[in-house]
Design a protein around this nucleic acid. Structure first.
Lengths: 211, 211
DNA sequence: GATAAAATACCTGGAAACAGGTAGAAATAA
DNA sequence: TTATTTCTACCTGTTTCCAGGTATTTTATC
């Protein structure tokens, strides 16, 4: 990468984090913090007028979320490198960010020198992750080992109603279906999730954030 | 309160937060940051040798949690004021910390001047909360409107097993009880949670973080 | 237009859940 | 030591769940 100082921007609604990051970055040669923003909208406005090499992006923001914002950033300025910086250590979150074009994912417990290394790597066009993230991604979660089953529209609908405590006859009534039909869908749900009763079904659904 | 500079300590495993807080506090008159720690154990060791007026305590720590650590701190040095500083914005967390003797609860999205005001209030012996926390505490959560039922040891045990997908006969076998006894406990659970089947029971349990 | 996937509906039968009790022993708290 | 709670266990019934199918119609998809 070039010798010019990279223009970096931080988007995070926590003042503490903003200050902390700037402190950690002030020692880094060839990086200039061009600005800090506490909302996604504020940053997007800035991005329309200025060029930004890399953005450290918090995932939980007051007006939007990191996933949507990342997509917006990439649409507006594809060359801008997005590095997610978050407290969320869930695999699904990491994957979603990458899918939206993020170049890496850092957890906020990252060490100071590690942070600078990761930023350099990202600037070099590499994918980069903080140590903790690498560990999370290396061991697949129990939930993901089985994979999230693909549910049909009806199945989702019926899963929802089961989770609301409705019995098979109840569901049949609310959806104007035969109880036998509902039974069939219910069985499909149990099969797809590879569980043997509703207790586990609900747990799986909650784990997969389907409720 | 006295004119002496208050001795403040920060316990947080996130370097970014540590740096950020110090930056925000460096302008505050009459507060000196005496030390920063990334584990509960490290701080407790320090506390045995030194006097500390106030500690900013993160709740999620690698070796322990804020609730237990707060209790330890208060046992070792009752005069030390504990201010919780956390990302968790759940009522239950706030209440638990207060129960362990914390003098206040701040969220990490706190503003810089707000932080200093809160610390001053705490030093004056007052209870103090960041704005966001006040809002959370003012409107009781849906979960708490209904109240979290108090479960007996057996009931918790059986709830756990139900959530694992075990049937009544299964549970009876694993606990060496009569299935009829298990049925009784199961009914108590349904009654206490005011639900009519396991689907809702599991959801309630998940919502109340009992699983 | 053919093929696949999804949605609908049915059947049989056994197991479990749920609702409504009662009641004695054991542990805890007042 | 009472009083209260918790744990234990039982009984009677009805309803729902769950497992194992089959089969037709509708809706996408190629």
């Amino acid at each position: 990468m070039s010798d010019k100082r990279a223009k970096l921007v931080i988007v995070d609604d926590h003042l503490i984090v903003l200050e902390g990051l700037q402190k950690l970055l002030q020692n880094a040669a060839n990086i200039t913090v061009e600005g800090t923003f506490t909302t996604g909208a504020a940053f997007l406005t800035f991005l329309e007028q200025h060029s930004v090499d890399i953005v450290l992006l918090d995932i939980s923001l007051p007006d939007t979320n990191g996933i949507d914002l990342c997509r917006e950033i990439k649409k507006l300025s594809p060359a801008t490198i997005v590095l997610a910086l978050s407290n969320h250590n869930e695999r699904s979150m990491v994957l979603q960010m990458l899918q939206q074009g993020a170049s890496g994912y850092l957890l906020k417990n990252i060490a100071g020198d590690e942070l600078i290394v990761c930023i350099q790597e990202a600037l070099n066009g590499e994918m980069t992750f903080s140590q903790a993230v690498k560990e999370i991604m290396s061991r697949p979660s129990v939930a993901e080992l089985k994979g999230i089953p693909r549910l049909t529209k009806r199945e989702k609908e019926i899963l929802q109603l089961i989770a609301e405590g409705q019995t098979t006859p109840d569901i049949a009534a609310t959806l104007h279906l035969s109880p036998l039909t509902v039974e069939t869908h219910r069985k499909s749900l149990l099969q797809k999730f590879e569980v043997k009763n509703v207790a586990l079904l609900i747990r799986m659904a909650v784990e997969h954030k389907l409720l």
